[in-house]
Amino acid sequence: MASGGPARGRLAEERKAWRKNHPPPCGFVAKPETLPDGSVNLMVWKCVIPGKEGTDWEGGYFPVTLHFTEDYPSNLPICRFPTGFFHVNVYDCGEVCLSILGDAWKPSITMRQILIGIQDLLDNPNPASPAQDLSYELFAKNMTEYKKRVRQQAKRYPSLV
Rank of each mutant, 00 (worst) to 15 (best):
residue 2 A to M: 08
residue 2 A to E: 12
residue 2 A to N: 07
residue 3 S to Q: 12
residue 4 G to T: 12
residue 7 A to Q: 07
residue 9 G to R: 08
residue 10 R to S: 13
residue 11 L to Q: 09
residue 11 L to K: 03
residue 13 E to I: 02
residue 16 K to W: 12
residue 16 K to V: 15
residue 17 A to S: 11
residue 17 A to Y: 07
residue 18 W to L: 08
residue 23 P to I: 07
residue 23 P to E: 04
residue 25 P to T: 03
residue 26 C to E: 14
residue 33 E to K: 15
residue 39 S to M: 04
residue 39 S to P: 00
residue 40 V to A: 00
residue 41 N to V: 09
residue 42 L to I: 09
residue 44 V to C: 09
residue 44 V to Y: 01
residue 47 C to M: 07
residue 50 P to E: 06
residue 51 G to P: 07
residue 52 K to R: 15
residue 54 G to L: 11
residue 57 W to K: 01
residue 59 G to A: 11
residue 60 G to Y: 02
residue 62 F to I: 06
residue 63 P to N: 11
residue 65 T to P: 05
residue 65 T to G: 05
residue 68 F to R: 04
residue 70 E to H: 13
residue 70 E to V: 10
residue 71 D to P: 00
residue 72 Y to P: 10
residue 73 P to I: 10
residue 76 L to P: 02
residue 78 I to Q: 09
residue 79 C to H: 04
residue 79 C to G: 05
residue 83 T to G: 00
residue 87 H to V: 10
residue 88 V to Y: 02
residue 92 D to N: 13
residue 94 G to Q: 04
residue 94 G to A: 08
residue 95 E to F: 01
residue 96 V to Q: 13
residue 100 I to Q: 01
residue 102 G to M: 00
residue 103 D to N: 15
residue 106 K to G: 01
residue 110 T to S: 14
residue 110 T to K: 04
residue 111 M to L: 14
residue 114 I to P: 00
residue 115 L to P: 01
residue 116 I to F: 00
residue 120 D to T: 06
residue 124 N to H: 15
residue 125 P to W: 10
residue 126 N to C: 13
residue 126 N to T: 10
residue 127 P to T: 06
residue 128 A to S: 13
residue 128 A to G: 05
residue 131 A to R: 05
residue 131 A to P: 06
residue 132 Q to S: 14
residue 132 Q to D: 13
residue 133 D to S: 11
residue 136 Y to T: 08
residue 137 E to F: 01
residue 138 L to F: 02
residue 140 A to R: 14
residue 142 N to L: 01
residue 142 N to R: 07
residue 144 T to Q: 13
residue 150 V to A: 11
residue 160 L to M: 12
residue 161 V to F: 09
